[in-house]
Design a protein around this nucleic acid. Structure first.
Length: 623
DNA sequence: TTAGGGTTAG
């Protein structure tokens, strides 16, 4: 009878009863089954009807340690950590022996409240009661110290555990992995005589999170060899390794393994599959996985939106964001970051401004990722004032925030301000990276600061140990060219430690044409023919140069070379958003419904630009 | 005790 009734009461309390219904049940029990009343209260305190449970508790003259314990556990489980601590302290003060089972949840609440002092007091109390030899209490304490970054204390507790169960090993393995010390984690793992699936998972995810992907795969193979059955968590870690490696083939093999072994999947596994596809560039397959999913949370949605935004398909990112909103799913910071980047890529000013306003009114701009993406979008829209406002309002700034502002100022023509912002950054503890210097070099290009540009180029390597990449070299070439110092640009290219690419020779070519330097134009074009034999513009230009010099034979040779190689022009297009609608313009494509109107306006603009002194011929010839 | 998504340049 009692067991039957206990089950009934438990199921009753798990159903969502209204407060008045709860009171009725309680009254019924008191009047008809007074013996069951304490049991009802005990179950009540462990249920989600904690408010009513507390009221009943307060009316009990001398609650026993079980009742106190139930309340501490319930509060801790419901994340009501202050209440959990208060109840624990009340139990202690009322002279009742502290219940052993109340200690681990109390320590967990201290952890979540980041209250180290109270945590240590609870530990002292546990020592006084002799609970500290319990592996449950010790594991909780270990976790407590580890998450406050006190690995030494955590290890001390671990070493003091007389009979160590797999749980305390697993706990410390994940602690070491999270701190980046996979070697220490591995030593513990190897010491274990009895492992659980959690041990294997902790080790695999530890390797995955620390970029040691092949070690993660090797330990997985051993897991299979030792006949352990992987679970969803194993699969998620493995798929994330495939994503990080960009190894689609391996990802597909893992998916086949899931299929062959009938391993169950869940929403997080599907999200990991989706992400694996995205990072391998298979965006359409990611979308298929997305469409197949029965349940999708905001993380799924965000992963797919980010997938589009990162793979050069921003309009689909925006479309999916709108779809998510229309399904009444509240966007989070990650979805917002991706959609801002998509709006910036597309110059979708209206949509971008609307989302920016939403971010500010929902206070999402306190997130450093969101704020950086927002300021970058404003700067790409050319609205440097708004970009500055967002930057100045930021409480926390990371290197991306600084870089976005420096680059934004540089490309919008505020070179000097970009440089002085860098000086300001140097006063903080922030260290510049390659992108910072790209911004600074761009600033020097636009402000004509040759000497300073060369100084930055030198400083990045000697002061910060950053090896200049192709783009940094291209900036220096550009700086020389724009100030008409073509010879120095050419000498710089010849001295480069890396093989110059088409952008670099293209920059020199451009400058040689405007400066009428036939010799350098010929050199750069010959290099360009080697580097991008598909680009028809290069052949046409070289042949024109020979023709203008009267070197007809050579001109003809280049033209024939182009015919032999069957070079075709690559199709380029531009796009613009008007009233939230995207319009694409392909080269030679006149299918747009308002083509005639558009074309006449372009002609008109060309006339105005030419009369204002702009030379459009070069661009028209090359593209 | 173990699991999924993000911003800057080119």
């Amino acid at each position: 009878m009692a067991i039957h009734m206990e089950r009934y009461l438990t199921s009753l309390l798990h159903s969502s009863l209204q407060l008045n219904q709860l009171k009725q049940v309680h009254t019924l029990i008191i009047t008809n089954y007074p013996d069951l009343a304490p049991l009802f209260v005990k179950r009540l305190l462990g249920s989600s009807a904690i408010g009513y449970g507390r009221k009943v508790f307060d009316k009990i003259p001398q609650p026993d340690q079980f009742l106190y314990n139930s309340l501490v556990c319930a509060y801790s489980k419901l994340n009501l950590n202050e209440d959990a601590l208060a109840m624990f302290s009340l139990m202690h003060r009322s002279g009742i022996r502290v219940d052993f089972f109340a200690v681990p949840p109390t320590i967990k609440s201290c952890l979540l409240l980041q209250d180290v002092d109270v945590g240590k007091q609870v530990q002292c109390l546990a020592i006084n009661y002799g609970f500290d030899s319990s592996v449950f209490v010790q594991t909780a304490l270990m976790d407590f110290y580890a998450r406050h970054g006190d690995l030494v204390s955590a290890r001390k507790i671990f070493d003091g555990i007389f009979i160590k169960d797999p749980v305390c090993y697993n706990c410390l393995i994940s602690v070491y992995s999270k701190s980046g010390d996979t070697e220490a984690a591995r030593r513990l793992f190897d010491d274990m005589t009895e492992r659980t699936v959690v041990s294997w998972n902790s080790m695999i995810s530890g390797y995955a999170q620390n970029g040691e992907y092949h070690d993660g795969l090797r330990i997985f193979e051993r897991m299979l060899a030792e006949k352990f059955r992987p679970n969803e968590i194993t699969l998620v870690s493995l798929l994330s390794i495939c994503a990080k490696l960009g190894d689609l083939e391996l990802g597909l093999r893992i998916m086949k393994y899931i299929d062959d072994n009938n391993l169950c999947s869940n929403m997080i596994v599907s999200t990991a599959i989706l992400e694996m596809y995205v990072k391998c560039g298979a965006v359409d397959d990611a979308r298929k996985e997305f469409d197949r999913m029965i349940r999708r949370d905001v993380v799924t949605w965000s992963a797919m939106i980010a997938g589009y935004a990162q793979n050069g398909r921003p309009s689909e990112a925006v479309e999916l964001f709108e779809l998510m909103m229309s399904e009444n799913i509240k966007p989070n910071d990650v979805a917002l970051v991706s959609v801002l980047s998509a709006c910036a890529q597309l110059s979708l000013v209206e949509a971008g401004e609307r989302i920016g306003a939403y971010i500010e009114c929902q206070s999402f701009d306190s997130n450093v990722y969101v704020a950086s993406a927002l300021l970058d979008m404003h700067s790409k829209f050319g609205d440097i004032d708004k970009a500055r406002q967002v930057f100045n309002k930021m409480q926390v700034k990371d290197i991306v925030s600084w870089n976005s502002m420096i680059v934004g100022l540089a490309v919008n023509g505020y070179g000097e301000e970009a440089i002085s912002l860098y000086e300001k950054m140097k006063e903080t503890t922030m260290r510049p990276n390659g992108i910072t210097f790209l911004g600074l070099l761009t600033a020097c290009t636009h402000a004509g600061l040759v000497k300073l540009g060369l100084e930055f180029f030198r400083s990045m390597k000697s002061d910060y140990g950053i090896t200049p990449e192709m783009e940094h070299h291209a900036c220096i070439v550009d700086i020389f060219c724009r100030s008409g110092r073509l010879k120095e640009a050419f000498e710089f290219i010849c001295r480069m430690e890396v093989e110059p690419n088409a952008v670099i020779w293209g920059t020199l070519l451009n400058a040689s044409r405007t400066n009428l330097n036939v010799e350098l134009a010929e050199i750069s074009l010959k290099k360009l023919l080697e580097l991008e034999p598909e680009n028809s513009g290069n052949y046409v230009l070289l042949s024109n140069i020979y023709a203008s010099e009267g070197r007809w034979q050579e001109a003809l040779k280049v033209r024939n070379l182009m015919k032999d190689k069957r070079v075709k022009k690559e199709v380029a297009y531009s796009c613009i958003a008007v009233n939230n609608e995207l319009h694409n313009f392909l080269v030679g494509d006149t299918s747009h419904p308002e083509w005639n109107k558009v074309s006449s306006i372009v002609d008109e603009l060309a006339i105005q630009l030419t009369s204002a002194g702009c030379d459009l011929n070069w661009d028209l010839e090359r593209y």
